[in-house]
Write a protein that binds this DNA or RNA. Sequence first.
DNA 1: GGCGGACGTTGCGGCAAGCGCAACTTTCGC
DNA 2: GCGAAAGTTGCGCTTGCCGCAACGTCCGCC
Lengths: 291, 291
Amino acid sequence: MKGTGHRVRDDHRGLRLFLHLTQSLNFGRTSLDCHVSPATLTRTVQRLEAELGHRLFDRGPRGVSLTAEGQRFREYAVQALELWQAYRDEHPYPAELTGSLTVFATVTACQALLPDLLAPFRTAHPQVRLDLRTGDAAAALARLDEGEADVTVAGIPARLPEPLAGRTVTVTDLVLVTARDRPDPGLDGPFVLPQRGLVREAADRWLRARGRPVDVACEPDGHEALLALVALGCGTGVVPRLVLEHSGVRDRISVLPAAPAPEPFPIGLCVRRSDLRRPLVAALWSLTAQW
Amino acid sequence: MKGTGHRVRDDHRGLRLFLHLTQSLNFGRTSLDCHVSPATLTRTVQRLEAELGHRLFDRGPRGVSLTAEGQRFREYAVQALELWQAYRDEHPYPAELTGSLTVFATVTACQALLPDLLAPFRTAHPQVRLDLRTGDAAAALARLDEGEADVTVAGIPARLPEPLAGRTVTVTDLVLVTARDRPDPGLDGPFVLPQRGLVREAADRWLRARGRPVDVACEPDGHEALLALVALGCGTGVVPRLVLEHSGVRDRISVLPAAPAPEPFPIGLCVRRSDLRRPLVAALWSLTAQW
DNA sequence: GGCGGACGTTGCGGCAAGCGCAACTTTCGC
DNA sequence: GCGAAAGTTGCGCTTGCCGCAACGTCCGCC
């Protein structure tokens, strides 16, 4: 599959992209954070500029900056979205929705995010049966594809496979951890890394950027297993900070200062785009706060 | 050519259709006034309702009525459009646009509408050369098709050919007229009707609705010619009220009371949809008030 | 001084959103 | 009962918008 056309109408996506860009002032950054291709972002802004008849950004070689017209349009965009949100807050999806929704989440997400994240939806639609499955973050997107889950809550890659829509709910960062009561293996000691998945990829990038040979001592499957090995002194581990903070073994682990700041690690909701039409999914989507 | 897909992005069309419908409470009426097919209107409302998760209208056999949620959404729609309009008023298309625009208008439109209609555009963009052509209303749309005009100001049919976009600027009604100083030929006397065009079609419908045999005395080409014949006492004429009011011979003509109220006659702007992307056309479009 | 990477833009292919036409259902009036 | 009127729906078609990948440009770095 190559391109997709617009899948589901979202009248405000252009405004949201624009607003994010006014803050990041960096096309690549916004493109990653909002899970759209750079081409789409460029064209979305071009389209806005054509409709308005004004340039919104000055693209200098030294980065982009907001023009005066862009600033005024930013005010409009903020107000328009607030107006919409006010309407949505007052008139959410009708209660008494029934049916069931299958949510797939990582263990960490269950502990750290799910309660707060789903509370508004649960309050509004107590009749809806929520089936919650847990598992490896790497399996989350596959579950969506296979139709075995309607929503996932997990780390999400910057670029999603095409039929999916993602929304970042929070960001954490990766931390390097060692056993607290063991001699410090340091940043050159053996590493304990996840076998696969987003954390592994991010860890690989980070380690490669340091340019030193890496000794991988073991590659457990799952964050809890990884932390257990680290607590046992098997080496230096890499995990999202959020995982560490909610771990049962956090008392036995300490965080190493990381030389180049590790990249932020986005965690969010993911659904099939086509499902945004289903009332249940749309209700959940609209009842979860935008990051 | 059958369907068209959406031609030019107009984020607010759905809201405008919805608002018109809240006032007419009649799908057919709104469909005609806004120049969209009944199917499109139905589906636009259905789409809104699906996105919101609420029914906006109750479709009873006895006509449609706004639901409570519809009323609240109406407030939102009004505010959203006002916000947008406020932005547009403050930041119209940039001045210093140059180039030329060919406007085609009927004689009546030139006299009655053009000055007020184009004043804001002229003020904002004095550099733009305006080529004004006049002619038969029936020829207006053909001129657009052939690319010989960029904009027309004329009576517009309820259903436009596909590649065109129309906007009603004002409405007038048809009136029956006779020579003031002649014996009244009455409503059964000979008629003077335009040879073709929208007025002829509307006149035919009106006459047919009365169900009496019609004696057409002459079929001049153009409203001014028609009024001249009427002033000469050739028979009873049918013209838009606006034409009569701006005619040079209006002193010699009097209006007959019409038995069934004649249908309103919309007059407006018309452009090629694809041209809404061109800065000049877009500027003109955005600087003309919505009816 | 050339080479590589970061950053934004553009050519291209493709999917599906959304349009109008026409047929259909339901309701009301004569 | 039959026909007109009003809204909905099946259908085919166009085209807007998406992502991919190639491209141009500018910077820093050895």
